[in-house]
Design a protein around this nucleic acid. Structure first.
Lengths: 217, 217
DNA sequence: GTCTATAGTCGGATAGAC
DNA sequence: GTCTATCCGACTATAGAC
């Protein structure tokens, strides 16, 4: 799927505006203006506002897959059947730490807003985002947790644990306004990201260790 | 601040619609219809759409304060200066477990959507929500964590830890679509809430224990 | 492919009857 | 306090010039 220059600009602008104000609240004129294009270009290239919205979802899914890729590669060995619990634990910590680094970057904010809207009010775009962007990471987390917990936990409990672990990271993106107000920080730069990562690592380590011991006992 | 019947109906309808579609995407006519009122009633009672929006924020803040109140009362003794780490740990677990119970209820969905919008795109309403609804709970979490960590952690680290703990719970509310898809659940009823609470309790216990030991060592 | 012009609908605010 | 009627601007979509 090769995009022309104008299509790329329209998608970038639309992700920003759809994310900030929601699909219904954004005018096609505002998107076109922000992209330096004519409103009718949206009709021509995407068939209308809804087509542009779905194109945004596909773009975001592809971008997320790219960002996850290194983390998934690095942890693939640890999820294999012949690896031990210690390796799996290290892989989980690495995934969440890496995920935190991705999510704290400023340029993730636009896509995150878009995704959260779909979470709370799913449209056909949600399927694209879930299968393209979230499924792979969740599945890897599942595999790693299973290497630690064995078969003692039912599958839905594994998934809930995976979501709770990821949720710690997500909160710093979703509840950004509260984070800034509660800490007094002006923004989340490198120093703040390191603090967050350190705490995510400590929490994850504690949780996974407990899971390991809980299963052994 | 006593509300007339029509004001109450308008606020209820507006929270639902503003939460689902966002302030800009909802028409005053749609709100009025849902409330069984005339559009001009919004102008008359709230001065306009924005006034209604702020009234929604105040209403939500008051409702949240009410829901938090029992948890804050029950944990106030444990946050006092003469209580021990074990009491504080139990209080933290109780707070998060209770918070999970509140957040999993279906009728929290509307207000949660409204709040998440303000998180990602703060308007003047955010201050109302933060100070009225979030500040008290966060502060109590802070106090309890401090009883455990002593003075070894700088204040912003305490707050980040508090947010990470709360984030686990929040994720199940604002990533609801992912939760349902990842688990295959059809809804989050009592049985599912118990599973989530159990995992929150286990995770919280692990995190707080680690914090306790980390400080002692 | 890119533009302008226009059609038809719906947005919020408000004046004035009752 | 509650209603109707109306203003004016913004919306999406589309037809047609170039």
């Amino acid at each position: 799927m090769q995009l022309s220059a104008i299509e790329a600009r329209l998608i970038e602008a639309a992700i920003e505006l759809f994310g900030r104000d929601g699909m219904d609240a954004v005018g096609t004129r505002a998107i076109a203006d922000a992209a330096g294009a004519q409103m009718s270009a949206i009709t021509y290239h995407f068939g209308g506002k809804e087509g542009l919205y779905l194109a945004c979802a596909r773009h975001i899914a592809a971008e997320m897959r790219e960002r996850w890729a290194p983390l998934l590669e690095r942890t693939s060995a640890a999820s294999a059947a012949d690896s031990g619990a210690a390796e799996a634990r290290a892989a989980i910590v690495a995934m969440l730490s890496g995920f935190a680094a991705i999510m704290m970057k400023d340029d993730t904010a636009r896509t995150a807003r878009f995704i959260v809207r779909e979470q709370m009010n799913p449209s056909p775009a949600f399927k694209i985002l879930f299968e393209g962007a979230m499924q792979p990471g969740l599945q890897r987390m599942d595999e790693l947790l299973q290497r630690i917990a064995g078969r003692r936990l039912p599958p839905d409990q594994l998934r809930v644990r995976a979501l709770a672990l990821l949720g710690q990271v997500l909160a710093f993106r979703f509840a950004r306004a509260t984070l800034l107000r509660a800490t007094g920080w002006e923004s989340v730069g490198e120093a703040e990201t390191r603090i967050i990562q350190g705490i995510i690592v400590a929490h994850t380590h504690a949780i996974v260790s407990e899971l390991e011991q809980g299963v052994h006992s």
